[in-house]
Amino acid sequence: MSRKVETILWIARDYLKCTGCRRCEVACSLFHEGWIWPEASRIRVFMLVPGIEVPHLCSQCHDYPCVSACPVNALSVDNGTGAVLVDREKCTGCGACIRECPGNIPFLHPGDGKATICDLCGGEPQCVKVCQEAKFNALWTVRENRDGWGSYSRKLFAQTPEEITRDVAINLYGEKGEEWA
């Protein structure tokens, strides 16, 4: 008897390779907003320390704490990709999903004030495309089992920009990194 394995699409990330070109923000906002709008991009590059650039985006936790935290059921999980979808009609911009996310990754859109989360562009993430085209390889996509090996690790990527910055700064800058971050 064959059993259907449910897979998700995931954007893998290597902070050490991020150049800080922020073309992921350009591509994301061009796709979702029709024009370049870095602050509305679903992937946001934080540079809390110069040279330590951190692309910050949804890590698709196996238990989706943001979805269960929403008091008005505005969040759901896409069946094909596993992305978190926001129903902008229902969302009240209360910020519960931001607070519940271990990495405070969602944010309120600078235009309509609604929760904004990576939707994987429906399956072809534009941020990954431009990062790959430039051969930076800080972002790439993987298909993996929704509940298989590694699914718990995904959630570990849901860290705040400050936490990630500290790790990457120590990795790249050594002791000075500890002072900076």
Partner: peptide
Amino acid sequence: WVKRYWSDFNCPVA
């Protein structure tokens, strides 16, 4: 060199 490609906004050259 700890970063071989470092850019500013919207620059693919790095």
